[in-house]
Design a protein around this nucleic acid. Structure first.
Length: 884
RNA sequence: GGGAUUAUAGCUCAGUUGGUUAGAGCACCACGUUGACAUCGUGGGGGUCAUAGGUUCGAGUCCUACUAAUCCCACCA
């Protein structure tokens, strides 16, 4: 066996930069991340939300990483066959935009390059940059199975996409239609409803007169988009609106275009908004389109793919919409047809990817998925608890979306992505939808032309939980790991992604893809703002790792975070986490400097302090495990933090010192064995959050073998739970704290040692006797004396009463009787307040009769203890008064 | 317009099914280099849990109203 490092070999500070890369490499090379199927055992599976290949690791990803790696490492240590499957998304639009930008620098355009050459470039780009984020993820220390890494456009996923497309088409759930869609002029593509972001915009409401065709004054319409009037084909009014009854069925003149258009009556129009008359632009407004259908109005598209006005806009052709708006308004004004301009603010839709580009509703021929029938079983699955949202409230967002679902526009006018598997025959007009590329038209043998468009990137993402496991093949992985256990993601993509995965999982696999959907919030900046490129307030996780270590970043992202809530990133938090890592490192260093071999301790030889820390450890194991199961990682991390720092370091290690330096050989052996035992368990509990630190320390532990990440998660041992000893220890701790407090209050120099006299409470004599070493070590006592009665108490002392007994510290002339009496009097006063509260409760019949008996008893005990304490205080005050 | 979340110490946040002196980290004050750690230790100050009602023997926790902030959905030209 390789010689172990000892504590003396360890640096005095934890240096994460020195170990992270090597440890990660060692884990990966040893295959520690690789999942293994074990028949008969239930696996724990997470399929990772695939980051975009264009992406760079940001804080949101970092959060994703830790919130998945923690449960993954936990379950792996629990012994579950554990799979965390990673991968990346081709991100159709996002990637294509980047590649086009890069091409622009070379003076190239998509069109000049042609589809084939463009795709070649795209794939090269993917090869070069697609792995970037994956390497960045490794720096987080995540333990996913890289041997199973997937890409949404790899062969298997592409096969899955075609299979689903064809199946849905054959079921009539995918169709092509000329419908109103959201058009993003920057993407030059259709986008789905979910990709439109509405923002409130200050604008105007223009009132425009459309004169009657018969020379009458006609009608005044109100609009927020005057430029669209070029495509108007009618004016609608409410049938009940008496102002306009005479106009319905007549014609008005569309100004600028000098065209006659009809006035129709439709319920859609609200009488009390604007003028009660609405111009109809069926090609550019979903509502107008519907009205137009009902009244057979003409449909005229007046914009190009890039958003500029087209030839149907007459002399305005070629203008961009804002330019056109200005020109239209000016001309109308000149003609005296602009009646009024009101300030008006309204919601405008913008493209999800091009935040400053307004989306234009537009009539267009696209492919759609009919969602209604698919959504039903997906809604039911969540209702029936087959998939559970954590926190539960997010299921409401899911229902809200799914119950009002509209058909999903899946075609995109892009090149990078899954090309729609539809072919058209130019000879006979036949349309072929096929899993395999057909050579010629199956009907007439004619030449085929494939649909030019690709699929929405979310179409392939929707299949991710099963396409990555091999579907449509019935692979062993698919059979074993599907459905997965958990999905971890932010609340911002419940509609985009989660809902669609559940939908397609049920449709294709017959089973919902996850048992649990764990939703987390956003990582915001220190001021609570969203981190964004435009604000420039993003923090690069890699820089944080470089400075503080991955463990510190990981820990800072979970500590004090509750599920589903946003969290603020702050350097202070990372520093606190780094300090904690260093604390654990040094505690380990201390243990290793004193313990050089692994020995079991003799349960019969355990002292009070040993039993106390073992007992506290059991509670920590229980709490941490419970919180890990619930997905409450914030609480789990806090529990470990408190146990490690406030109990193990602040008390047990300090208590151990007098024994390690003492003469009692058996006590020394016991404390060494317990130190090692508790440390090892602590490292295991901490490992899911701080894998590097804990793994590194584990290497040094005497008798450790293999990786900590593959060791068994601690189990609760009932034989290590010692309730009585916990109480005894608490008594000793209270005395120590009280002495420290007194000394501080009396301004006793820390270096000055003082005698300690103890008058034990009933049943505490032995425990206090055993505490002698601790009092000396931790409370500045030169010696501690147990007294049999009050008579032995020296006069010039300060005193205090604790549950374990009264304590007296002779401080000679430092003691001012008047002041001491006042001090004790104040304490007594506080105590009396507390007793009054307690008595009040116990006098309350409602409390006595309705509260659980155990609580009542607890309150009685509390009162009794307080009364005893008060009595002792009174005695002491009386004694002091005699001496004045 | 519909819905959700948040409001607790100067700051960032915890607070389990209501159980009775409300916790942590950071910041602040005082003291301290006792051989794990100054990325540390000890002690201390600091909150009537946004507001107003209600239910209850008992409310930070449950209900109602109200205020503020954030978010989701819908969207009337």
């Amino acid at each position: 066996m390789e010689k172990k490092m000892t504590g003396a070999d360890m640096e005095t500070r934890f240096n994460p930069q020195a170990i992270e890369a090597d440890l990660y490499k060692a884990w990966e090379e040893a295959g520690a991340f690789v999942a293994h199927r074990v028949e008969g055992r239930k696996p724990f599976t997470i399929v990772m939300p695939p980051p975009n290949i264009t992406g760079q690791l940001h804080m949101g990803h970092a959060m994703d990483c830790i919130l998945q790696d923690a449960p993954i490492r936990y379950h792996r240590m629990k012994g579950d066959p554990t799979l965390w499957l990673p991968g990346t998304d081709h991100a159709a639009i996002a990637t294509e935009v980047k590649i086009v930008e890069a091409m622009q620098k070379e003076g190239l355009t998509k069109e000049s390059l042609g589809r084939e050459a463009f795709l070649e470039r795209a794939w090269n780009w993917k090869k070069e940059y697609g792995g970037r984020i994956v390497h960045q993820q490794r720096k987080m220390g995540i333990s996913c199975d890289w041997s199973r890494e997937r890409f949404t456009m790899d062969e298997g996923c592409s096969k899955a996409v075609r299979e689903v497309f064809v199946r849905l088409y054959e079921k009539g759930l995918i169709y092509r239609g000329n419908r109103m869609i959201n058009w993003c002029p920057a993407c030059r593509s259709a986008i789905s409803d979910a990709e439109v972001v509405y923002k409130d915009q200050a604008s105007h409401l223009w009132h425009i007169r459309y004169p009657g065709a018969d020379g009458s004054e006609g009608v005044v319409v109100a609009t927020t988009r005057p430029e669209t009037m070029l495509g108007d084909t009618g004016v609608a009014v409410n049938p009940a609106d008496e102002r306009y009854t005479g106009l319905v069925g007549k014609k008005v003149i569309l100004p600028l275009m000098n065209k006659e258009i009809p006035v129709v009556a439709d319920e859609y129009v609200e009488m009390d908004f604007g003028t009660g008359a609405v111009k109809m632009t069926p090609a550019h407004d979903p509502n107008d389109f519907e009205v137009a259908q009902r009244h057979n109005l003409e449909i005229i598209t007046v914009t190009n793919d890039d958003g500029t006005m087209n030839e149907n806009a007459g002399r305005f052709a070629g203008m961009d919409p804002m330019e056109c708006r200005k020109a239209v308004v000016e001309e109308l004004d000149k003609l005296g047809l602009l009646v009024k301009v009101e300030d008006y603010s309204h919601n405008v839709g913008f493209c999800y990817r091009h935040g400053d580009t307004p989306v234009e509703p537009r009539l267009s021929e696209q492919w759609f998925v009919a969602m209604k029938t698919l959504a039903e079983p997906a809604i039911a699955a969540v209702r029936e608890g087959k998939t559970k949202f954590v926190p539960e409230r997010f299921s409401k967002q899911y229902y809200n979306w799914m119950e009002n679902i509209r058909d999903w526009c899946i075609s995109r006018q892009l090149w990078w992505g899954h090309r729609i598997p539809v072919w058209y025959c130019d000879s006979c007009g036949e349309m072929t939808v096929s899993r395999e590329d057909p050579a010629c038209c199956p009907k007439c043998g004619g030449k085929l032309r494939q649909d030019e468009d690709v699929l929405d990137t979310w179409f392939s993402s929707a299949l991710w939980p099963f396409s990555t496991l091999g579907w449509p093949e019935q692979t062993e992985d698919l059979k074993y790991f599907y459905p997965t256990s958990m999905l971890v993601t932010g609340y911002d993509i419940i509609t985009f992604w989660v809902s669609r995965m559940i939908t397609s999982g049920i449709e294709q696999m017959g089973e919902t893809p996850f048992e649990t959907v764990l939703i987390h919030g956003l990582v915001r900046d220190e001021l609570g703002r969203k981190m964004s490129k435009s604000l420039g307030n993003g923090v690069d996780p890699l820089e944080v790792i470089e400075e503080y270590g991955a463990d510190a970043l990981r820990f800072s992202l979970v500590m004090g975070v509750s599920p589903g809530n946003d969290t603020r990133y702050s350097r202070d938090k990372v520093e606190a986490a780094r300090n904690f890592a260093n604390k654990v490192w040094n505690a380990s260093r201390f243990v290793l400097m004193n313990v050089d071999e692994r020995k079991a301790f003799d349960p019969a030889a355990l002292e009070t302090a040993d039993k106390w820390i073992l007992s506290r450890l059991q509670e920590a194991i229980r709490d941490v495990s419970d919180h890990m199961e619930d997905g409450d990682f914030g609480l789990a991390a806090t529990k470990i933090y408190d146990f490690a720092w406030s109990e193990f370091c602040d008390w047990y290690i300090e208590l151990s010192k007098s024994r390690l330096l003492g003469e009692d050989g058996e006590s020394k052996e016991t404390v060494k064995a317990v130190l090692l035992y508790v440390l090892e368990n602590l490292l295991k509990l901490l490992h899911p959050f701080m894998p590097f630190l804990t793994e590194q320390v584990y290497k040094y532990l005497p008798g450790s073998e293999g990786f900590l990440m593959l060791q068994k998660w601690p189990e609760i041992r009932d034989d290590f739970t010692f309730t009585e000893d916990e109480q005894k220890m608490q008594g000793i701790m209270e005395i120590i704290r009280t002495i420290r407090n007194l000394r501080s209050e009396m301004n006793v120099a820390p270096s000055k040692r003082t005698r300690l006299m103890l008058l034990p409470a009933e049943g505490w004599a032995d425990t206090l006797k055993g505490g002698d070493g601790y009092f000396r070590r931790l409370a500045g006592a030169s010696e501690s004396l147990l007294m049999g009665s009050r008579n032995e108490v020296a006069e010039k002392t300060v005193s205090a009463v604790t549950a374990a007994g009264e304590l007296f510290i002779p401080l000679g002339d430092l003691v001012d009787f008047e002041k001491e009496i006042a001090r004790l009097g104040k304490e007594l006063e506080n105590l009396q307040k507390e007793m009054n509260r307690s008595r009040g409760m116990l006098a309350n019949q409602g409390f006595i009769s309705k509260a659980p008996a155990q609580l009542v008893q607890q309150e009685k005990d509390k009162l009794e203890a307080a009364e005893a304490k008060a009595k002792a205080l009174e005695n002491r005050i009386a004694e002091l008064k005699e001496n004045v």
